[in-house]
Nucleic acid binder design. Sequence first.
DNA 1: ATTCCTATGTATAAAAG
DNA 2: TCTTTTATACATAGGAA
Lengths: 169, 169
Amino acid sequence: METTVKKKGNGRKKIEIKKIEKKSNLQVTFSKRRAGLFKKAAELSVLCGVDVAVIVQSPAGNIFSSGGPSAIDSIIDRYLAATSQDGDRKNNMEIMKEIEVHEKVVKENKDLKGISKMGSEEFWWERRFDDLDVNELEEYIAAMEGLKKNVLAKVQELAARANAAPPPP
Amino acid sequence: METTVKKKGNGRKKIEIKKIEKKSNLQVTFSKRRAGLFKKAAELSVLCGVDVAVIVQSPAGNIFSSGGPSAIDSIIDRYLAATSQDGDRKNNMEIMKEIEVHEKVVKENKDLKGISKMGSEEFWWERRFDDLDVNELEEYIAAMEGLKKNVLAKVQELAARANAAPPPP
DNA sequence: ATTCCTATGTATAAAAG
DNA sequence: TCTTTTATACATAGGAA
């Protein structure tokens, strides 16, 4: 038998909406809720077909944030372009890699600061990057992380449709 | 007895995260979720003491969004300034009025378009207003509505502190 | 800092007013 | 069209690993 002394989680408790004092607690809550906020934003974006952006200032330091689905679409475009060249040997892992590449590209754009190819409406939110710091970009990347699942779903859908393209009779 | 034939709401059902086709449904979902998103953003802001902004593009048309707590702070400043002039005869209803005034001011700024006093970092998000339309401002106002409770709490706290200022001995 | 767990608080899809 | 109700799905605080 067991000693029955294994009380697991106590379950959620209600909290007041006021500044959290306990610092460690604040950090955890920040992480969880930021993730939740990004998820909700992504869902709203997909469900209603609208562009959504969320910008937060981390407690530690500077600002930063998540981009809209336009960015996601461009990632998908790049992926589909790549697969049509290489055949279908890229897998989901590769898709994730693609996303990470995108993240790097954005980061590099930040370093260049002279961004001229970024003038389109689609990247309005990226225009702010030349004002931002590296930490802020990390926030952005974190946001992209949160969207990976959605991207994956979208990509799979599009890829499946692309593969279903009928060959010439 | 009753005929037991009064099936009320069926309750929430799970939905896929994909673009909603039924237009009426989309409109409802957009409204609800946008409100929810703003609420979550406001909570994150208060709980963690960080600046949060949400920007969404309405399905109907253009962009717009909700501002960070900096805006709230400025509202509080204005309120405290007003109360120190008029004594303490303003009540909570008046505070709400103050907020509405602020909303109008923003709207007017939109019409002026030449905004020069808005150059500070604190109002970065307002800089976009000259690109926006009236409908978008209404969205902004709706967002402010959602934050009124937080403002009220904050104002009461600050007002109490102000009133507690010790008279010269 | 992430991740898993569990018990709950919240958000919300549908239906009804 | 907006608000309220109902029944549930989902998010998340606290604790532990």
